[in-house]
């Protein structure tokens, strides 16, 4: 699935990709996220081993590891995030390999805007649930 998808072509019920998107949680990824979001919490620092002996990432790193899967369905430029739900089952940790799939739950029009509702499900290498997300995106206008 590549390229920009028109709103009319967004298929409700579609699950993608066939092979889940793999994301390795490295120290570099976590450090970059912490730096970009001004996060200095001791719980997520390199010396922290607070999640069953492993260094946890901030739960909202979900916004990073779900992104590649979510953006496989590309909106025309100008699309924005309208709503976001997350359920954090357990922290993703440095060294984990995460697997994410997406399902299109719904699409609708409201006040002249096009909306797409998507669900992301992320598990770790042990097939343990890490995060479930529900995203409402405003689809960018087509040229």
């Amino acid at each position: 699935m590549t390229g920009i998808v028109k709103f009319s072509d967004v298929e409700v019920g579609l699950e993608y990709p066939d092979k889940p998107v793999e994301f390795k949680v490295t120290a570099e990824v976590v450090d970059k996220y912490l730096s970009a979001t001004f996060d200095s919490a001791s719980e997520y620092k390199p010396e922290s081993m607070q999640a069953d002996g492993k260094r946890p990432a901030p739960p909202t790193l979900a916004a990073v590891y779900m992104m590649e899967a979510m953006l496989m369905l590309k909106s025309p430029p100008g699309g924005v995030h309208a709503k976001q739900k997350f359920h954090f089952h357990k922290p993703a940790c440095v060294g984990d390999t995460l697997l994410t799939r997406v399902r299109i739950l719904d699409k609708y029009q409201k006040k002249g805007r096009n909306y797409v509702l998507m669900q992301t499900i992320t598990t770790n290498q042990e097939n343990e649930p890490i995060t479930t997300g529900t995203i409402t995106r405003i689809w960018g206008k087509e040229e």
Binding site: T37, D39, A41, P59, A63, K85, F86, P91
Partner: peptide, 22 residues
């Protein structure tokens, strides 16, 4: 949302990371 997460981490990171919701 990351700033919201910081608030929750400061409050109780385990209650946020293990079962928290937004």
């Amino acid at each position: 949302l990351a700033f919201v997460s910081q608030m929750m981490t400061e409050w109780d990171w385990k209650g946020w990371g293990y079962g928290g919701e937004t």
